[in-house]
């Protein structure tokens, strides 16, 4: 039991430390480690991953809680999740202090002037990817009209009502999804 918890800590800390570029970038690392320790096959993990995407919270955190519970119960879930987050928090605390210190440095300002449009591009592309899987099947043969209608309604709503709350829109869209059926 105790050795399982220790292993969970080591594996999740390592993944947290060596994965750049957000939660989905961790997936290959997860699969390799879980299969190595015999915790879960990749097919079992794909089910966990779809669950993690459909539940609130960061995808990587959700997956870690699930797998931690699967390996060593509630304590396992807590240890896996905290171990995954710990390296980010520690590194980010140092980086954040540094960023605050150089906030008005000309070189930093120049770098972030270039980073700004590059990052907006990343966000736009993330939107394109979600749109792609939400509105179409792979070969564009099937169009999900229901999703398109909800998209259009929310799109118009948020420009009409300036201060509309995103939480309200999420609940509204989820309800519309259920009501319109499949």
């Amino acid at each position: 039991m105790l050795s399982n918890l220790w292993k969970l800590f080591l594996v999740f800390f390592k993944i947290g430390l060596f994965s750049f570029g957000g939660g989905l970038a961790m997936v290959p690392l997860f699969i390799t480690e879980f299969e190595k320790h015999g915790w879960m096959t990749r097919h079992e993990f794909f089910n966990v991953l779809s669950l993690a995407q459909m539940t609130p919270g960061a995808i990587a955190m959700n997956s870690s809680t699930y797998v931690g519970n699967h390996v060593a119960g509630v304590i396992g879930g807590i240890i896996a999740t905290f171990s995954l987050a710990a390296p980010s928090v520690i590194i980010m605390l140092f980086m954040s202090r540094f960023l605050i210190k150089v906030k008005h440095h000309p070189a930093k300002i120049a770098i972030f002037k270039g980073l700004n449009p590059a990052t907006i591009g990343l966000i736009a592309y993330a939107g394109i990817q979600i749109a792609h899987t939400t509105f179409f099947k792979n070969d564009y043969s099937v169009i999900h009209w229901k999703a398109l209608v909800i998209f259009a309604a929310i799109f118009i709503l948020q420009f009409m009502i300036k201060k509309v709350n995103p939480i309200f829109m999420i609940i509204l869209a989820a309800g519309a999804g259920i009501l319109l059926g499949s």
Partner: peptide, 11 residues
């Protein structure tokens, strides 16, 4: 499906 469509609009 509704939430994802909403997400695209919000992004």
């Amino acid at each position: 499906i509704g939430i994802r469509a909403c997400l695209v609009a919000m992004i």
